[in-house]
Design a protein around this nucleic acid. Structure first.
Lengths: 267, 267
DNA sequence: CCATCTTTGTGCACGCGTTCACAAAGACAT
DNA sequence: ATGTCTTTGTGAACGCGTGCACAAAGATGG
């Protein structure tokens, strides 16, 4: 997958493992589809297949929520949809603000899916004065100066950061100071936040790099062990200080726009 | 984080744990920043802080790549940048195709960051005939009919799916049939692929739901145990078949555009 | 009311990943 | 050279997550 866990090792609330929480949305999606087809009940086997997981894992996940199944029959779809929604807190309204209305921010704002499942775009915020007032997805963009006021007035607790990497930490600090306790970060930076604030990150660059790693591995196995040019692994730095011995100019002069691109970006 | 792992449990190639591979891009990013500031060496402690991880973890991660550090000094920045880049396969060119040029697809295409780190957008593909030929981010969009030809002609092995959920599996099948072995999926669907094909997914909806879960938990702890309205947990379905007893109409009639939205979307 | 058959819920074992804690390696000063 | 001080590399313990396999629960049919 393309997401990454951040800090906060075990959030184990009432005993629900973090790994299970991460799968609940998957089950919910599959169940919603079944619900729309008016399927009354579903077995762990069927649902597991639909969600792309192991049936034993699914049953164990559900066991953390309680015993909602009926042996010999399976799970009641509607009931399970309700239970999971409630457990995830989707039965209530979650106002969300998106900061950084560039290409990605605009795409996220236009993304109608927000409305369903209890998430509502309360405001769009951007630092560019030229953007102020301009409607994006039917919502007028507001200037960063209004950030604090917007957060408090709307009781927003979830913020989405889609700014360039350079502005992310600063925006993050302001969001947290204004009372936000959950952040979804699209900027390619490590955000530092105080305890009690959750951060999850979405990073296209990292995902691509992980895929490249496996891709290279696959290609390498086929041939035997091509391992780059010739001398497999260049010898470690013998004279550690100053310029490294074996390090070729491969990545030299690699600055450019790197490190300040809008949302999801390499490195 | 906002990404999710898909199938392929242990990819443990030459002994590099999957968890370590997922962190290498993080280290690389921090190292690149240091490199640009011309910092010659860095200790595991400093680098770990910059990457937002534990120093012991970082050292163990690097130990899988080999002994590239110097005791009493730290790691040579340039050398490490090279080693990690090579390990991740970033020293070679990776042509990528983006399928589904809607809001998100366009945002990804416009995202200049692709260029750095060896990733190159080889083509943009969309099913809408009206989009054909229209340039997005300077690259003319091509029709889906050309998909197979584009893949083979350019030797593309990595594909990005940014189509509506309904079209994702179909597009995925065609990509795989055409020879693609790595897929980054932005559509809110579980893709099934044959062995040997890696899939990673980015799902805004799931990330938001996970944040909502923790947010609800935080709010609940403060007050005591508000747990919804009154009767904490509605009794389990006594008459399992037919309509579930306690299930309120909370999520009823929840179809709408759900399940066919462009890229990242709820449920 | 009993037998059979389906499917859940979970005890258990295993493996991966994380973290601690420290010995060894090497830089640096004297 | 020798000693001190810094920092790496890793052995070992621990905990979480996964998957197997099965007993118990309940539906269903006679």
């Amino acid at each position: 997958m393309a997401t990454g866990r951040t800090h906060r090792p075990a959030t184990r609330s009432r005993g629900i493992p973090e790994a299970t929480v991460a799968r609940l949305p998957l089950y919910l999606r599959a169940l919603t589809a079944l619900s729309e087809r008016s399927v009354p009940t579903v077995s762990s086997e069927e649902l597991a297949t639909a969600a792309g997981v192991n049936s034993a894992k699914l049953r164990k996940d559900f066991s953390y929520l309680g015993s909602y199944g009926t042996r010999g029959v399976g799970y009641d779809v509607e009931y399970l949809v309700y239970q999971i929604s409630r457990e995830l807190g989707l039965t209530q309204d979650w106002p969300v603000v998106i900061v950084g209305i560039g290409n990605l921010g605009a795409a996220l704002a236009n993304y109608g899916g927000f409305a369903s499942r209890g998430f509502r775009v309360a405001a769009l915020i951007d630092a560019d004065p030229a953007m102020a007032g301009k409607p994006v997805a039917g919502i007028p963009v507001q200037h960063t100066d209004e950030l604090e006021k917007i957060i408090t007035d709307n009781g927003v607790s979830i913020g989405v950061i889609a700014t360039p990497a350079g502005a992310a930490q600063q925006v993050c600090d302001r969001l947290v100071a204004a009372g936000i306790t959950s952040i979804l970060n699209f900027a390619p930076t490590v955000l530092s936040v105080p305890d009690g604030v959750d951060v999850r990150k979405v990073d296209l660059s990292i995902e691509l790099q992980i895929l490249a790693f496996h891709e290279q591995r696959k290609a390498g196995e086929e041939v035997g062990a091509p391992e780059e040019a010739a001398g497999a692994v260049p010898p470690p730095p013998v004279a550690p200080h100053r310029a490294p011995p074996g390090a070729p100019g491969a990545d030299s002069g690699r600055q450019g726009p790197d490190g300040d691109v809008p949302a999801v970006m390499p490195a």
